[in-house]
Design a protein around this nucleic acid. Structure first.
Length: 421
RNA sequence: GUGGGUGUAGCUCAAGUGGUUAGAGUGUCGGGUUGUGGCCCCGAAGGUUGAGGGUUCAAGUCCCUCCACUCACCCCA
């Protein structure tokens, strides 16, 4: 019979790898907590309409990458392709803006996009999202980016590149759109097929194209940064000034465009060279109009997402140190000894020690091998002979020294020895 | 969605131009004198060679189809 395998693009995170995830998540909780962020746990399914309205009808994500289905009845539901929309939905649904002027949230969980899998790209992938709502102060932009960089350094990623840009606001972007459209329209022959289409749907995307011809045309094109309104220009300047007050080197990439429509003003991306083509480990930006567009009060916000698979792939997390080793292996010989081991083993575990044993009635030799392989600090040898004498042999696996231990108070004796090692 | 690459034991890989019972390392299990780990030695289990079809006296090897994995385009975390 053919075995059933996981769905294409969906991965298992096995022991050995899962400890790394725990480590990274722990670091995130610690650091984000220091910055005043609190966790929000969100559903994975949302009404399709939420993503259409927030991400944008004409984005690739909404047009062709969503797992969407019709629930019993006629409601269209979608497995979330990103988290920000859900955070905004919850923010509105529970009127979180009412209790605090500034709300800081983070969430960790899986996202779903039906793309062709490749290195660093999966159909189910996990993101760590942080969102700050209720402030349009440029220092907040710098603070959020600083938190991200600090977190990445915290898990050992220090050679990543931070790029920032400003995408303007409803006051200046439409004007620039016209300028760039006029510029590109005159050179449309040199553009690739995709970009010709983008000309009418979203001309700014042409800046992001990797086709040589398009890159060339774009390289001499006017830049949005040059057309920012006064407010956006000042804001961008202050964000940069804020970042410079900390050790966070960045470059301004005027051609960076983000794939979601809701971004305004500040946009940023963190990339690394070690990931192949999918080199972005984190990205984010400001979205001052999103909450309003979803029918809520004026709530400017900024946030980012970290791709956990990608982060864990590049973070130098040592295997040892995240996986603990057992304190003691109990090698029991014979039925009676095994019964004794069964009780002692579980009592010790409940007392907080990390104990292994096995009930397969193997030879002492193979049990010693197992203890060694597991990296146990001690082995307790318990055979019929020991049982009769009411003692067991505690072997130190480092120096091979053995000492007898009375069975009557074995639990306390062992715990006291373990606590000293 | 479009290309390229790769599919042999749990894992990493061998098997000159088609030619006996498809091998090795590693891992697993057992053994190397009575009940003592590591190093070393011996043994065992473990394969429908991704699946199906074709060519041939003969296919892991050549051809076709499908599937999976993988890298890249695209897009993004």
């Amino acid at each position: 019979m053919k075995i059933i395998t996981a769905v294409r693009g969906f991965k298992d995170i096995l022991p050995g790898e899962s400890e790394k995830w725990q480590y990274v998540e722990g670091k995130a909780r610690e650091i984000f907590g220091n910055f005043g962020f609190r966790e929000i746990v969100l559903p994975i399914l949302e009404k399709t309409e939420l993503f259409k309205r927030s991400i944008g009808e004409t984005t690739d994500i909404v047009e062709k990458e969503m797992y969407t289905f019709t629930d019993r009845g006629d409601e269209s539901l979608t497995m979330r392709p990103e988290a920000t929309a859900s955070v905004m939905r919850a923010y509105l649904e529970h009127s979180l803006y009412a209790s605090e002027s500034v709300v800081k949230l983070y969430t960790i969980g899986p996202m779903f996009r039906r793309e062709r899998p490749q290195k660093g790209r999966f159909r189910q992938f996990n993101q760590l999202n942080a969102e700050l709502l209720g402030s349009k102060d440029p220092r907040v932009d710098a603070e959020v980016i600083l938190m991200l960089i600090h977190f990445l350094r915290g898990v050992g990623v220090s050679d990543a590149q931070l790029e920032i840009n400003s995408l303007g606001c409803p006051a200046c972007r439409p004007a620039f759109r016209d300028v760039i459209h006029a510029y590109l329209a005159g050179k449309s022959d040199g553009l690739c097929e995709d970009c010709q289409r983008r000309l009418s749907t979203n001309p700014l995307r042409v800046f992001d194209c990797k086709v040589e011809g398009c890159k060339e045309i774009v390289s001499t094109a006017p830049l949005l940064i040059e057309f920012l309104c006064g407010e956006c220009r000042d804001h961008f300047g202050e964000v940069q000034a804020g970042l410079r007050q900390f050790d966070t080197p960045f470059t301004v990439n005027a051609r960076m465009v983000r794939g979601l429509d809701y971004y305004t003003k500040t946009a940023f991306e963190v990339t690394t060279g070690a990931l192949g083509a999918q080199n972005a480990i984190a990205g984010g930006g400001r979205y001052d109009r999103l909450v309003e567009d979803l029918g809520g009060p004026e709530s400017p916000g900024i946030g980012f997402a970290v791709g956990l698979e990608r982060l864990i792939a590049v973070a130098p997390i040592p295997d040892e140190g995240v996986v603990g080793k057992p304190d003691l292996f109990i090698a029991a010989l014979g039925k009676e000894a095994q019964d004794f081991a069964f009780v002692l083993c579980n009592r010790l575990r409940m007392a907080g020690a990390r104990i292994e044993t096995d009930y397969a009635a193997r030879s002492l030799k193979s049990q010693m091998k197992r203890s060694d392989k597991l990296g146990c600090r001690f082995t307790l040898i318990l055979g019929e002979r020991e049982l009769q004498e009411k003692k067991a042999l505690l072997r130190d696996m480092k120096g091979s020294a053995q000492q007898p231990i009375g069975l009557d108070d074995a639990e306390t004796t062992i715990l006291s020895i373990l606590s000293k090692n």
